[in-house]
Nucleic acid binder design. Structure first.
Length: 144
DNA sequence: GCCAACGTTGGC
DNA sequence: GCCAACGTTGGC
């Protein structure tokens, strides 16, 4: 199953604020067109690494998609059309990583050279290639 | 706080 | 439809 990486600013919406209950929490605020394309590709059951930006710059946890993309209910004026401008998904918190995986550590590993996280620093929703997901699982101590 | 690397906007 | 000017993100 596909794995994604979502970025969030920990002072705005930290990983810990994601609900661990079945329905999860709405993940909104994605405006970048490329990020929205990825967001619309998320399916229920897909796994999502949560990455904290700003001072942390590390993968801190794992979440799962509990509801696929739908129009942001807070932006009806922009979503009342065939192609909604803003999409959101629901995410449920699954588990913390055993060890946060820092951007510096990811950069230092030549196997992540093609990762969007390094190639396009402003992208907030991106796919994680399966081979890289395996590496990240091992480096963070995630058992899933 | 700075600035590179994007996106977006609006005049033409 | 182009592109200059402006705005935003996020690493440093």
């Amino acid at each position: 199953m596909p794995t994604w990486l979502f970025k969030t600013e920990p002072s705005e919406f930290p990983f810990a604020k994601l609900a661990a209950a079945a329905g999860g929490t709405m993940w909104d605020g994605v405006a970048n067109p490329t990020a929205l394309i990825h967001l619309r590709s998320c399916a229920v059951g897909d796994h999502v690494y949560i990455y904290h930006t700003a001072s942390e710059k590390a993968i801190v946890g794992l979440a799962v998609v509990t509801k696929a993309a739908y129009p942001d209910p807070a932006r009806p004026e922009l979503n009342d059309r065939a192609e909604p401008r803003f999409a959101v998904v629901n995410l449920r918190r699954v588990m913390d990583v055993k060890a946060p995986l820092t951007l510096a550590a990811i950069k230092a590993d030549p196997r992540s050279a093609e990762f969007d996280l390094l190639r396009q620093s402003r992208l907030s929703v991106m796919p994680v290639p399966p081979a890289l997901a395996k590496i990240i699982d091992s480096l963070t101590g995630l058992k899933r």
